[in-house]
Design a binder for these strands. Structure first.
Lengths: 118, 118
DNA sequence: CAAACGTACAACCATATGGTTGTAGGTTGT
DNA sequence: ACAACCTACAACCATATGGTTGTACGTTTG
């Protein structure tokens, strides 16, 4: 259980880290809109091909982007499901917050005594 | 316009970076559930007070956490609105993706010729 | 076949990051 | 007043990160 939880945290680390760079977010936007070869992407930025290639690799390791081979070029595509899974991590955080509110409400109007606390 | 866009990207960088660390996500969960002093938070982790204090500072700079002073302690609180604003950045990405789908639909059933392309 | 293209990856460099220890100042309790 | 507590921040260190150049290899084209 701690095992799978760690994996989940590893994925979260990788995804948020991948998103924490404006160039990578821009690349992600482009490949969500449609397939692009790495060199086509590289042409859009003021940095070397190798740098862009690394950014795509980071997005790929995070699962936000998938690549397929077509002849000599590698076509990158954005994975919406992965983006949504990041969204649900945030939703989970909001749920924790709602718990706080619920607890504050309890102070104002305590729930019916279903169970004695202590 | 590029000016405000840059600020937006700066905020996105800071927020995603703040979230890209499991300790910081855990701290955020706790302070979303309720106020905690920095030393109370520090007691939960196997690292020095200074390290935790830095993590809280990162979350604070990103706007995900606010602090208020109460006597000698600093009470940290999670900001749900900030968490939601990260969520809307992701929603924006999903919107880009829907554009891709719309375009694919166009190939199958082209829209009425309102304007000539080229 | 040769040249050009697209990709991948290693090696390297400057800076950023996450941790440590140490120091200092404001607050609380005796 | 004094000790203990909480916070803040500087200085330092090892490692990670984002960029570079260079090399190698498969694919397309002339």
């Amino acid at each position: 259980m701690t095992d799978t939880a760690d994996q989940h945290e590893d994925r979260a680390d990788a995804m948020f880290h991948a998103l924490a760079d404006r160039t990578r977010r821009d690349i992600l936007r482009r490949v969500l809109a449609g397939e692009h070869s790495v060199s086509a992407l590289a042409a859009s930025y003021d940095m070397t091909f190798a740098a862009v290639q690394k950014h795509v690799a980071v997005l790929e390791r995070a699962g936000l982007v998938t690549k397929r081979r077509s002849g000599r070029e590698a076509l990158a595509s954005g994975d919406v499901e992965a983006v949504r899974s990041v969204g649900s991590m945030l939703t989970e955080l909001e749920t924790v917050w709602r718990g706080r509110i619920a607890r504050i409400d309890d102070l104002i109007a305590p729930p019916p005594p279903t169970e004695r606390n202590q």
